[in-house]
């Protein structure tokens, strides 16, 4: 077995594994999964695709291929039709039914050139169909086209959910993730916190030092947030100088600790464009240490209310509500 070629790069998928957008990576050498029950096909392609800049991984039946695809999110799958245990069509159906693997392009390989097989493969979501015996130059060309298409689609999907200045998720993505995380929280009855952050007197930075200085503050604060949040948290640029963080499995008390680190870090930062002008932030937190008791919009509204309460109380501070205990706390700047 040509095991020397099976170097596996584990990577996160775009939609499920990746929780903060700055972690997204578009790999230079895409991982290609080959699923075929014939050793001959593996050896042939491993040898003939050696000069392509891809990492080729071999699986010998549909079930193993499916499991590998779920765990490793390859950039492309080459899938044989005629296999024992789980045949190619069944495997393709499973790949397209799973949210983790549904967007991975699949090229079907088959020894039968019957039109009906081709139509079925395309109907099930294959991007291409290549007949055996292979014309190797054609196979390489088709492989490259599919990989290019995949990388462009990945880039577009990323651009659609990422804020260009900060690399955080954008507002559209926040709305989607907030809904998902809220539903998960309600379903499991776990703690969760929602944070709204606003930069104090931001307009005066723009007016006093110019928009590039304002942009530097926004991206600088985003970096502080990224440093403090975990992979499972969702940090977003909500709009303008406003940010939000969804903290699943996190009580308001723990959220407060995280936010206070960000707030204090921001307050202490000396900005190259305006060393004498410090920047502070106000923060509103709404969450539950036990389970969700109010609806999604009310929850968001409470975080917003707390943010404005922090502003009205003099800025540079955090206001917290824990729905479970209905307790409101206040943390001031030291």
């Amino acid at each position: 077995m040509p095991s020397s070629v099976s170097a596996i790069h584990t990577r996160r998928g775009l939609d499920l594994g990746m929780h903060t957008a700055h972690n997204a990576n578009l790999d230079a050498t895409p991982l290609v999964l080959l699923v075929d029950d014939s050793k001959f096909v593996h050896r042939l392609l491993v040898t003939r695709l050696r000069s392509e800049s891809i990492t080729l991984h071999s699986e010998y039946d549909g079930k193993a291929g499916l499991e590998f695809a779920i765990a490793n999110s390859p950039a492309l799958i080459m899938l044989d039709l005629d296999m024992p245990i789980m045949d190619g069509f069944e495997t393709l159906r499973n790949l397209k039914d799973n949210p983790i693997t549904k967007d991975i392009p699949v090229i079907v390989l088959s020894g039968n050139s019957a039109t009906q097989d081709k139509v079925t493969a395309f109907d099930l979501g294959a991007v291409d169909f290549i007949c055996k015996p292979f014309e190797l130059t054609e196979l390489r060309a088709r492989l490259r086209v599919s990989l290019q298409l995949h990388s462009v689609m990945q880039m577009l999907a990323q651009k659609a959910m990422i804020d260009g200045l900060t690399g955080l998720y954008n507002r559209a993505m926040f709305d989607q993730r907030w809904q998902e995380e809220y539903e998960r929280c309600v379903r499991h009855g776990h703690p969760m916190s929602l944070v709204m952050i606003d930069i104090d007197n931001f307009k005066s930075i723009n007016d006093g030092y110019g928009h590039p200085a304002g942009d530097a503050v926004i991206s600088g604060l985003a970096r502080m947030m990224i440093t403090e949040v975990r992979k499972s948290d969702v940090a977003c640029r909500y709009g303008g100088e406003e940010f939000s963080i969804i903290l699943p499995e996190t009580s308001p008390e723990d959220a407060l600790a995280i936010c206070e680190r960000i707030r204090i870090q921001c307050e202490k930062t000396v900005w190259p464009n305006h060393p004498g002008r410090t920047v502070t932030i106000s923060i509103g937190i709404a969450g539950t240490s036990v389970e969700a008791t109010l609806d999604r919009d009310q929850w968001l509204g409470q975080a917003d209310k707390n943010l404005y309460a922090a502003k009205n109380a003099g800025r540079n501070q955090t206001r917290v509500t824990d729905f479970a205990t209905d307790s409101q706390g206040l943390s001031r700047a030291g």
């Binding site: 029950d37 014939s38 001959f40 042939l44 024992p84 015996p133 190797l136």
Partner: peptide, 13 residues
């Protein structure tokens, strides 16, 4: 199965 595999592979080898 074997005939099918040889049909697909042998020409490429």
């Amino acid at each position: 199965r074997l005939a099918h595999q040889l049909k697909g592979a042998a020409p490429s080898y």
